[in-house]
Each structure stands twice: as C-alpha cells, then as structure tokens.
C-alpha cells in the first residue's frame, strides 16, 4: 500500500517534468509567451538555413575556353550547383552562399562532412573544409581570398537573427596530365549547425 502511494507520487512528478519540457520546447516554430508575474519570456526558436537565391559564381583563370562555372540554387537546407568545367591550372569558380539564422538561439558549426566524388578519392584536410580531388581543390571559406586561413571550421558561430557568408572556392590546382576529360559526380559538403 505504502509502495503504491510512493509510485503515484513518482508518477505525478515525472508527468510534471514532461509537461515542463513539453512547454519549453513545443513552440520552436512559433512564439509563445509564458507569463510569470511581470516577467515575459519569449519562447526560443531554431531556424538555420540557406538564404533562398540563385547564385551566379565568379570565375577567373587563364582559360579562354573550357572554363564554365555552374549556377547554384540555394533553398532551405540545400544548395545545388549545376555542371561545372575547368580546363587549366589557375582556373577558379567561386560561389557565395548566405546562411541565415532566423531563430533566437545562437548556432555553431558542429561538424563539416565531405562526400568525395564517385569516381575519385580525395585528400581531406582542415577538418574537411579543404579537399583535394585530382587536379581540383575545394575549399569552404569565409571570404573569397582562397586562403586556407579563412576556412570555415567547427565552432564558427552564427548569432541569432543574423547571417554569415560561406564561399565554396573550387580551383584547378593540380598539374597531372590527362589526355581525356575527367568528370567528378556527386561531390557534396554538409555542414551541421547545432545550438551554441
């Protein structure tokens, strides 16, 4: 009998705990006001995504032909870059994306992952933000300098209600002679943003 009472009490405590957590997190997509006396606390929201836009890359290099940087479409959590071609050392394509934090919680990068092209293994450095695949080097940077010192990295912060720019910098850096075209498909970066 005594046991039964205790169990009821525990159950009630657990239910209360669940209710508190539910209230705290249930409104991640809308503003709730929790009123306690004279203090109003806005409920927190989480919303990190690319700014929706069509991105025209900048290109440079010595190629008079054979340099073609694909247009990118950013929407929600994904950027898709169209077919791109480079032909000579020094050729570059640079895409600028904007990551927006529309939520009320500061976000930070907790990991950067790189999926190498189907056809070729790559050398990954700097926590995957710099990757060399054959004659092509990919860099995820905070500016368009091309310098690895401005690479994006873990714990980079996007404050709540602000945005940051990310540059994908692809450059023909190798000098390995190839007598026919080499096509890389399905290269992918993923950046995980988490609560700071």
């Amino acid at each position: 009998m005594k046991n039964k009472k205790l169990i009821y009490i525990f159950t009630i405590i657990i239910i209360i705990l669940i209710l508190i957590m539910a209230i705290a997190y249930s409104a991640l997509s809308e503003n709730l006001k929790i009123t306690y006396g004279k203090v109003n606390q806005n409920a927190e929201t989480w919303d990190v995504a690319f700014k929706s836009e069509i991105i025209t890359p900048t290109s440079s290099g010595t190629s008079t032909s054979g340099l073609s940087c694909g247009q990118a479409t950013a929407s929600g959590l994904t950027v898709n870059i169209e077919d791109t071609e480079m032909s000579k050392p020094g050729d570059k394509c640079i895409w600028k994306f904007t990551v927006e934090n529309k939520g009320t919680i500061d976000a930070e990068i907790s990991s950067i992952d790189f999926t190498h092209p189907t056809e070729q293994e790559c050398t990954r450095t700097f926590g995957n933000s710099v990757d060399v695949c054959g004659n092509i080097t990919y860099k995820l940077l905070k500016d368009n300098s091309g310098s690895t010192s401005s690479r994006i990295k873990r714990e980079d912060l996007i404050n709540a209600s602000s945005s940051e720019e990310i540059f994908l910098y692809a450059e023909y850096t190798g000098e390995e002679i190839n007598s026919s075209k080499v096509i890389h498909t399905s290269t992918k970066f993923s950046i995980l943003y988490s609560q700071k």
Binding site: Y25, L28, W46, V48, A49, F50, G66, G70, L77, T78, V79, N80, I81, E82, D83, T84, E85, M86, S87, K88, P89, F97, V99, I105, A107, S110, P117, C133, G134, N135, I136, Y138, L140, L168, A170, Y172, E175, E176, I177, N178, S179, S180, K181, V182, I183, H184, T185, S186, T187, K188, F189, S190, I191, L192, Y193, S194, Q195
Partner: peptide, 19 residues
Amino acid sequence: VLQDRLYINVKTMTQSELT
C-alpha cells in the same frame, strides 16, 4: 530539432583534357 544539416551539392565537376 535544435540541429540543421545544410548541404552543398556539386552536380558534376569536369576537368578538361590537360596536355
């Protein structure tokens, strides 16, 4: 819910012949 994974997909990257 408090995490978002953003993806950048490169459809194809072609290295032209290098001679």
